[in-house]
């Protein structure tokens, strides 16, 4: 693999990792508050469709983004009602909402545009266009670092940078603010929060809403950044990969960045089987790369590489007890 190819692959790693990172952080908020969410996939899909449709109709990616967040939020709130208010089974709710999203996105897109369940191709201001970071041009002459900065770091859509910013922001919110302290507490032991006189329900709804916003960003980037419009099932299991990354990251923001970059790198490699063969000298089947994030997650879950301990109160509806 020559340097130019490596830069290319790292460049696409950045782009492929972004929706994973946003969804992973989305799941982090929810699960840290004690609400399991396997409905990340559905929320992303919903956001992708809303963004694709509204951006196509208005010609503005930013209005599209708002629509995407709104779409994702509706699903987040249904999940909240089912799992917080009605103390339903959080896993089943997540599964159910994924199916609803998978179907309803195509229904809406089809009825709006009649293009086989796709939204029309987006271009110009209806997409997240590359942002040239300062000095990218000037520094591109510098060996190794120059091209790296110009290609890998610079030249992505706004959401890539927002996603990256979300990592330190999430870390800060989680470990340096009152909100973060309470959020972590409610996911570990809701009784401790309740006896301290804080509302468990309100905290958990807040977390679920943040999850909705972040999934909205992830879906919007899918439709208006990574691709040029919404297509059926376009998230292709990314919600579950994000979930895997979350477990892999042991519910921590910086690890989440690393995990999603790793999984994004696998995805980028899977697009270039020629490179793998050239580098390793033998064929690595593409499906093996596709499956790698899941296999790694199972190994982590099995506790062979350090123990992944989920928030202790995760998945359990809170009922006040004596």
């Amino acid at each position: 693999m020559d340097f130019a190819t490596l830069i290319q692959i790292l460049d696409s790693t950045m782009r492929l990792a972004t929706p994973l990172l946003l969804a992973c952080l989305a799941g982090l908020y929810s699960e840290r508050s004690g609400i399991f969410d396997i409905g990340l996939e559905g929320k992303m899909l919903m956001a992708a469709m809303c963004t694709g449709a509204v951006a196509a109709l208005t010609g503005s990616v930013w209005i599209g983004l708002l629509a995407g967040i709104a779409g994702s939020m509706i699903f987040a709130l249904i999940h909240g009602v089912a799992s917080i208010t009605f103390r339903g089974n959080q896993l089943i709710s997540g599964v159910a909402l994924n199916f609803v999203a998978s179907g309803i996105t195509v229904l809406i897109a089809q009825s709006l545009f009649r293009q086989g369940g796709r939204t029309p191709p987006l271009s110009g201001p209806a997409r997240f266009n590359p942002i040239e970071l300062p000095f990218a041009e000037a520094l591109s002459g510098v060996p190794i670092l120059g091209p790296f900065y110009a290609e890998v770091i610079s030249g992505h859509g706004a959401l890539v940078y927002i996603a990256l910013l979300c990592v330190p922001l999430t870390w800060w919110a989680l470990f340096r603010t009152r909100f973060g302290l309470r959020l972590r507490a409610v996911g570990e032991n809701p009784a401790s929060v309740d006896t301290a006189g804080i509302s468990v329900v309100r905290l958990r709804y807040t977390a679920v809403i943040i999850t909705g916003v972040l999934c909205g960003l992830a879906g919007a980037y899918m439709a208006a950044g990574l691709q040029t419009g919404f297509g059926k099932e376009m998230t292709a299991g990314r919600g579950y990969i994000a979930l895997a990354a979350l477990i892999f990251a042991k519910w921590r923001p910086w690890y989440a960045l690393m995990a999603t970059l790793l999984f994004g790198f696998f995805q980028a490699l899977a697009l270039r089987p020629d490179v793998i063969k050239g580098t390793l000298g033998f064929d690595v089947p593409v499906p093996a790369l596709d499956a790698l994030p899941y296999i790694l997650t199972v190994i982590v879950l099995a506790g062979f590489v350090g123990r992944a301990i989920p928030p202790r109160a995760g998945g359990e509806p809170y009922v006040k007890e004596r």
Binding site: F175, R176, T177, R178, F179, G180, L181, R182, A185, S192, V193, A196, G197, I198
Partner: peptide, 9 residues
């Protein structure tokens, strides 16, 4: 927890 002074820890 629950008796914090202000939004920052």
């Amino acid at each position: 927890l629950g008796a914090e002074d202000g939004a920052l820890l």
